[in-house]
Design a protein around this nucleic acid. Structure first.
Lengths: 348, 348
DNA sequence: TTGGCAATCTGTAACGTTTCAGTATATTGA
DNA sequence: TCAATATACTGAAACGTTACAGATTGCCAA
């Protein structure tokens, strides 16, 4: 019997079906292999053939099938951004995402967001990504001096970039904001305004930039001859309420600080509320220098002194770094440090 | 000659290689097909075999290869969140993302973020997703009454959910905040405090919830017998500076409003700044009711009156809706509307 | 005994891509 | 002239999965 099952690309290239290499091969009269190679500018394809194939491909809107490529080559064309989803005012997360997408916009890469919650081991999502081969590159944040995730990925040879540096004697791409410089500038600025008893609202304890910030603060303190008012019970990933209450407590003591350096805008809102709860006035009784990632603090209180940190830039740099590493660049050359702006008072 | 190329899964299951169905087949002594069917609880597999296969699979940590599944079935196990990346204070974006990831966490789905910029046609990213078959489901925001993206996806039969409703007589899943109720409540609350000349800071003009908000505002105005002070030159996706300047201008006129209803927290910061630029005092000269998505407005000014909108919830609902549609549920049953909280003054 | 049928299991092909190992034709060197 | 070699192209196999169309077995009714 002649009953023959008609195969997919058998006849014409008319249909609504998405074009594949087979479609292109049929249209150009070439073999699938040749088409494949022509599209990626392989050397052993004639110049004219190459142009012809590429023209036709463009005309009919050929797009390589990601699943096909991924199955065959293992290349996913995916970058994963690993995020902790249990923090309060993470408005900067969208900035990072936008920064990343900006860079990968004209590449074949997709961005996937891989979440983990506080209760989990931060290594979990990374392990998942690596074990399932779900991404060609990974971006992590909340970096620690001795970061198991970085170590893990380094061991498996999977490209990644960290937001923040590590301190393990291992080299890998990163982007960081110079928090040492930030804290130093803040202290010097406050000293310049006659403030001499300063408190620091630190980053989360385990993270690398905690150390940078604390050191920058301490070094500048001794440089300008100011003193520190310990405020160790507070860090920026505590709740607004906690920070507010503790600040109010602190400000009701006689040995209260006359200046604050705050590592995050959200915490600063709470600090100011606490200061005012204690009946004191910003700018008169106490000055506050804060980092911010969007221009909102000056709307909040004009007396605030701000330093801008650009998270969109961070996202872009991190994406560039991962792509660079994937592309074979030297990891050591993919490190960048962002210098803080000056301390900015409200510009009338 | 006996030179035989050794194939991958030929011998043992020892290696570091990631286990595949072939590995499982070898270990269980079954055929690949049987293993495949056993893992998805197909009926024609013996109960004991099924258990055995699933046990072994769990033991060795088998994870289906996404590329293989996707190539064979067309199922991507991907949800795409389509975002406009050119707006100012989009802090709620991270909330939506977290809400989505919460829901898909214990599913095989990954979340990809697909950006588009203001200059582009909003249909572009959606077209890309559909044409390349890059996602099983799509979530869009900035929904319009007559939304080409919804229409497009409806035509192609690709599951999606919109953040905000459409008004095309077509049924599809959505999640929306009841902005009609919000604006109404806000007006009534202000009227209750003796305010009678109210201005509305609207959502962006083309979006569906612009209409809902405007109608809720207007209907409540006539209900309570208050009047509107037109403020059409301003909407919430303008820049902070523009809103601030125009508010200040408005507040310097003799026929200025004594109450504002604001559709977004970021705009509210600018409104308050404008009010104060004009030398007026919040709570005395004018009251402002504002939506907010995080608890920051009361830190900003205690006199503000807030209504909370939960974007994390929106993300979860949207994800649930898309997954439901993908799972074959009736699109009409996947619509939800979130009721605003009461108007909340600062709770001492 | 035989035929029919349900219950289980299996091999093959296909999804779209790239790599491997070629083949056919033209070009070169002596 | 012949072989060697470069040029331009090609089919088959493989990545891991699922769907299709059987194959094998045991059991029961006739």
């Amino acid at each position: 019997m002649d009953r023959r099952v008609p195969k997919k690309g058998d006849d014409d290239a008319s249909g609504k079906e998405r074009p594949t290499l087979k479609t292109l091969a049929f249209m150009t009269g070439l073999g699938v292999t040749t088409v494949s190679r022509a599209l990626k500018d392989a050397p052993e394809i004639g110049a004219e053939t190459r142009r012809r194939v590429q023209l036709v491909a463009k005309q009919i809107g050929y797009r390589p099938n990601r699943a096909g490529v991924r199955l065959r080559t293992g290349k996913t064309n995916v970058i994963s951004l690993v995020l902790n989803t249990e923090h309060e005012l993470m408005s900067f997360v969208s900035d990072i995402i936008y920064g990343v997408t900006e860079v990968i916009a004209d590449t074949p890469y997709h961005l996937i967001v891989t979440p983990y919650s506080r209760s989990q081991d931060p290594l979990d999502p990374v392990r998942y990504l690596v074990e399932t081969g779900s991404a060609d590159g990974v971006i992590i944040s909340r970096t620690q001096p001795n970061d198991p995730r970085a170590r893990y990925m380094l061991e498996r040879g999977i490209p990644f970039a960290t937001h923040g540096r590590t301190d393990m004697g291992l080299v890998h791409p990163y982007h960081d904001f110079d928090n040492y410089a930030f804290a130093g500038e803040a202290v010097r600025y406050l000293a310049g305004r006659g403030r001499s008893r300063l408190a620091l609202v630190t980053p989360p304890l385990g993270l690398t930039y905690y150390g940078h910030t604390v050191n920058g603060f301490a070094d500048a303190l001794s440089e300008v001859g100011a003193s520190e008012v310990p405020f160790n019970t507070v860090s920026i990933d505590q709740s607004i309420e906690q920070i507010r209450t503790r600040t109010a407590q602190l400000m009701r003591r006689k040995d209260r600080p006359d200046g604050f350096v705050s590592s995050a805008a959200a915490a600063t809102l709470a600090i100011v509320a606490g200061i005012e709860d204690a009946g004191l006035k910003l700018g008169r009784d106490v000055d506050v220098v804060s980092k911010q990632s969007s221009e909102l603090l000056h709307l909040f209180r004009r007396e605030l002194l701000v330093v801008n940190e650009n998270f969109r830039l961070a996202g872009s740099e991190l994406a560039r770094a991962v792509l660079g590493w994937i592309g074979g660049a030297d990891p050591g050359s993919l490190q960048s440090l962002s210098t803080p702006s000056e301390v900015l008072p409200y510009r009338g």
